[in-house]
């Protein structure tokens, strides 16, 4: 059972005192956070506040310069640790990042078959079911170039899901999309959340945050300024910086 959690209780992802530096600049300056199983955490904050850096530290795309990251209770540090941990933490990118030389089906099935998450037949069957649910079964044998942005992003979500991850990270998954297609992708994400997927989502879609988030994280200057349920963060934030940011965007 390669995908079974090491510990069923406790947070899926936990970070303590995480520091990430670019030269002398601290993109993350001592971040503590936990993500519990089944929880949806939405990360908001001004541009350059470290949201992407934070979420990328959660699957080792950025290696931390200080503090530690724990996945399922296991501290992760070496390259090898991360390569194993990444089977359990999926990621969806702003620019979809589908492999352009592979069909939708290959994009989805390649990694799970390789990592022996399932046999090829099982994986393809599951992929087809998931494509059907996001309304893209008819695109299974097309190449990404033949799909709209919203369709590509839905495929990218299915691709992450095909690994049967314990959590999925989303870095501004709708920021590159036309306003008309943002809804398609958000709908898929909402359904995922309803089914109990653990999610960390960086987004500017405040409607999504209010509706779906269990907790909202507000970041500024590489630190977490405030964490709380959306009702609290959006209506009566504790910190002045949170207030200022929310006033600016609404």
């Amino acid at each position: 059972m390669p995908n079974s959690p090491a510990t069923a209780e406790g947070p899926v992802i936990s970070v303590r005192g995480v520091v990430k530096k670019y030269g002398n600049m601290r993109a993350l300056d001592g971040v503590d956070a936990d993500v519990s199983r089944g929880e949806v955490v939405v990360v908001i904050g001004p541009s350059g506040s470290g949201k992407s850096t934070f979420i990328r530290c959660l699957n080792g795309l950025e290696r931390v310069d200080g503090g530690r990251v724990t996945i399922d209770g296991m501290p992760i540090s070496t390259r090898r640790d991360w390569q194993v941990a990444r089977r359990r933490i999926g990621m969806v990118f702003q620019d979809y990042s589908l492999f352009p030389h592979m069909t939708v089906m290959s994009n989805i099935c390649l990694a799970p078959v390789r990592a022996r998450v399932g046999t090829r037949a099982e994986t393809e069957e599951r992929a087809m079911e998931m494509l059907e649910r996001v309304g893209l079964a008819h695109k299974a044998n097309d190449f990404p170039a033949a799909l709209s942005g919203g369709q590509q992003q839905r495929v990218a979500i299915v691709r992450a899901l095909a690994m049967k991850p314990e959590a999925i990270l989303f870095d501004e998954p709708t920021s590159a999309l036309d306003p008309e297609t943002i809804g398609e992708v958000l709908a898929v994400m909402k359904e995922l959340a309803r089914e109990g997927m653990t999610m960390v989502v960086v987004t500017h879609e405040m409607g999504f945050a209010r509706e779906v988030a269990d907790r909202v994280v507000f970041m500024d200057k590489g630190r977490i300024v405030e964490i709380g349920p959306p009702e609290v963060i959006f209506t009566s934030p504790r910190e002045d910086r949170t207030k200022a940011f929310l006033e600016m965007i609404f």
Binding site: N59, L61, V84, R86, A160, M163
Partner: peptide
């Protein structure tokens, strides 16, 4: 981005090479 996508799907360096870098 494609390299990072391969990384997040737990590809090893040789898989990235063979499945992504060489064909593209």
């Amino acid at each position: 981005g494609l390299h990072e996508a391969a990384d997040s799907l737990a590809f090893g360096p040789l898989h990235y090479l063979w499945l992504v870098a060489v064909p593209l």
